[in-house]
Each structure stands twice: as C-alpha cells, then as structure tokens.
Design a protein around this nucleic acid. Structure first.
Lengths: 123, 123
DNA sequence: GCTAAACTTCAATAATTCATGAAATGTTGT
DNA sequence: ACAACATTTCATGAATTATTGAAGTTTAGC
C-alpha cells in the first residue's frame, strides 16, 4: 500500500460525521479512552452501527481498543493522527518556499513534526 | 451544515489517492499554484477524471482556481487545510489534560492555531 | 446455570462514488 | 473562420459504503 493510499484510507475513515464525532470525543478524552456505549449514547448511534464505524477507524489505525470487564474501551491513536495532520501541510511550498507568506506552516518549526517508530501497515 | 459535516466533507474530498496527491502537489507548489494539465500529467489522471477530482476538492473549499490564458491554475486553500489539521488534534484531552503525556499536541502552543475570517460555508 | 448488559456479526437494501468514453465549451494563434 | 490545445460536461456501469433489523457472543452478577 502506497503512502498516499494509506493516508487516503485514514482520511476516508474519518470522512463521516459520526466517525469524526467519535474521533473528536476520543481525542478530547485523551489516553484514558471511552467505552463504546459512552460513545454511542451521546452521539445517538445504534450499537451495530457504532461497531461498524469503530471497526473502520480501527482498521485504518486511528483508534485502539482494549477490553475492561464487559466494556470495550476505545482510545485515539494519537501518533497516527499527528502523522496525518503533519502530512497534510508538512510540505507546504517546498518547491517555492520564497514565494510563501509568513503563515506558511513550515516557516517555523512545529511541535506537530514527530516521528513514530511504526513501519508501513500491510493490510 | 454542522461543523462535523463540514469537516467530514473536507476529509472526504481528500480521501482518495489521486486527490490526496493533487493536494500534496498544490501544497508543495505554494501560492503560485499549478495548472490542471501540470497536475494531470505527472499523476497520470485522465483530463475528465482530473476535473472530477478538482471539482470535488473545490466544492469542499480545499482548492481555488483562476484562469490564466487557456490554463486553469489551481492553488491549495491553505487556511482551510490548516483549519482542518487543527481541528483534528486541536482539542486533545481537554476532558483530562492532566492524564495526557508530554507529546500531547496542546501541551505547548502550536503555530497551527490560526484563525480565519471566513464564515461558515453554506452549500 | 440463568439473565441482563455490552458488543459484534450477518444479511439485504439503499445510496454514493469512481472510471470511462464521447461530446461540448472556451481560448489562443494563424 | 479554422485548427489545436485545455478543460469541462454528460452518460453509463461497476464498485464501494452506509443503514437497518435480527441473531449471536462474551462478561458480570445472582
């Protein structure tokens, strides 16, 4: 899977209002995570639909899950999310830096520039 | 259109390898932009397919176009892209900041936090 | 073991998206 | 006006994605 295909898959996973809201809740919640039912309640998503969406996000590597009693706790995959955002604007105007204005995201070092130790995912 | 729907639309627009490659080329090119044929050539996309993809991106507000002679020059909508990336990780662990680690993207101010003067888009 | 709760799987349908070929539009130069 | 180039529009079919209802699995408590 090419880099672009991998990134497109992640974007595609988030390109749905329900899933975006899920990711947002998980990002807000931080590393402690949120159980599936805690997500489904406020967002008003049926249980099976919730599973569908969470699996899509998990398959794209954007969320992780662990079991805790009868609950399944989901957490955002922060590294992957940061990778993603960095990719989107991380190479602004490399072909013509001198023509880019002061708001260019690469004009000053950003804390977004992190590297993970993960290899490429093989579907 | 809700905030989530608007963001989902933008993500959806980029959730395709060809469109992602287009955005990447435009971001790399900076404000000067690139003509449609200059995009289509290297990416090996048929002219009509290219139009399809560019329109999807334009409709999501991620690219802008202007005519220059017989060419149509496309540029990335940098503000919108930055808005987008900021949205994705901009509210990390607001519900439990103390439990988030040092890599939390909100743990130090980021140059990504910009505000635009644009109102909400009404489709 | 039984029951309820939390979650997942399955199956069918509806809706959207993408690729392709053919035709049309707009622009430049002769 | 004409020819060539750049881009867009239109129409079709294939493929993917989302929604819904029903049934199945795992865990905790009695």
């Amino acid at each position: 899977m090419s880099q672009d295909e991998l990134i497109a898959k992640k974007l595609s996973a988030m390109a749905h209002p329900a899933r975006l809201a899920i990711v947002h809740m998980l990002v807000k919640a931080g590393p402690q995570g949120v159980s599936a039912s805690q997500l489904g309640g406020p967002l008003d998503i049926a249980a099976n639909a919730l599973t569908f969406h969470l699996q899509k996000l998990a398959h794209a590597g954007l969320v992780e899950s662990r079991r805790s009693g009868r609950f399944v706790i989901y957490t955002a995959a922060f590294d992957e999310l940061l990778n993603l955002t960095n990719y989107l604007v991380g190479s602004c105007c490399v072909d013509s830096a001198e023509k880019c204005g002061p708001r260019c995201p690469t004009s000053e070092p950003s804390p977004m520039h992190i590297s993970t130790s993960r290899g490429e995912q093989n579907d």
